[in-house]
Design a protein around this nucleic acid. Structure first.
Lengths: 145, 145
DNA sequence: CTCCTTATTGATACAATGTTTCAATAAGGA
DNA sequence: TCCTTATTGAAACATTGTATCAATAAGGAG
């Protein structure tokens, strides 16, 4: 789903196409990494575009409600957001995160967890919505330091 | 490792047995849940014991350095700490977290990830230190609301 | 038991992330 | 072009976390 498709979807649902929404969506469509609200704020400030932090959070909440972005939290720095479908590849993916420099990599492959989640639903009574699988370690560069 | 054993270990290593250390360790030994620094602070305040937040962080850092506590982050609320060995059972465990009420449960069983981690070390070049496996969903109680 | 050294504490100030409130603004249909 | 109202953003505040530094107390020496 690209920039214009998202705007069209918002329009169809009766949401106004405001500067705040257009700018945040633009940033999200051009980034495959997870970004925090303040990351987005800073990127926009660099372009001399001033959107209040409050509004950025509101746009992100809206996009999340519409299931257009997914959010996660790893380590410090709060919630981070990424457009659905902006995974490096579009299979179910997980993260490999460097504990030194914070570099994130997608790790794609068939997921050994999906089956497990189903079993767990039965044994635990939980209605499982999602799962995280994260590996932390030193990336090749940081091992050399 | 219980309260006295930890104090003895600190003493042996030349650390002073201060109020701050003793109180934080006491709270940790009597809780199997992951606790944030401010959780610990609040629990102590309730008992009318006043330990500065700064000191609580310092004790937690020390215990982490000595590998006596493990820390994780899930959802909002920052880093949370738990005594090593305070898992509900002492096998390798993962969490089941209610996305509504925040209830955490240990989920214990043979871990399907350990093998995967080893393979991943070879293919990615990362020196993997740990992994997280978290399931999020509605717990039985919250499903009824 | 008392004194002394210094490891440790905690108040304060500050930084980053996030939420609430409400008057001002601008989107877009009439 | 005007009007309605959805949307914005400034400000005040809450939470989590860190840096600084003078005051304190732990515990060994005498």
């Amino acid at each position: 789903m690209d920039y214009n498709a998202i705007l069209e979807l918002l329009r169809q649902k009766g949401y106004r196409l405001t500067q705040a929404r257009k700018q945040v969506i633009r940033i999200l469509t051009t980034n495959t990494q997870f970004l925090g609200a303040y990351d987005i704020h800073n990127l926009l400030e660099k372009e001399n575009i001033h959107i209040g932090v409050t509004s950025i959070y509101r746009v992100l909440d809206l996009l999340k409600k519409l299931d257009l972005v997914r959010s996660e939290e790893f380590g410090a720095g709060g919630e981070r957001f990424r457009l659905q479908g902006n995974e490096e590849q579009h299979e179910h993916s997980h993260q490999l995160i460097c504990s030194q420099c914070g570099r994130q990599e997608e790790w794609v492959g068939e997921c050994p967890i999906t089956d497990l989640a189903e079993k767990l639903e039965h044994t635990s009574g939980y209605q499982i919505e999602e799962h995280w699988l994260r590996f932390f370690g030193l990336c090749p560069q940081c091992q050399e330091l």
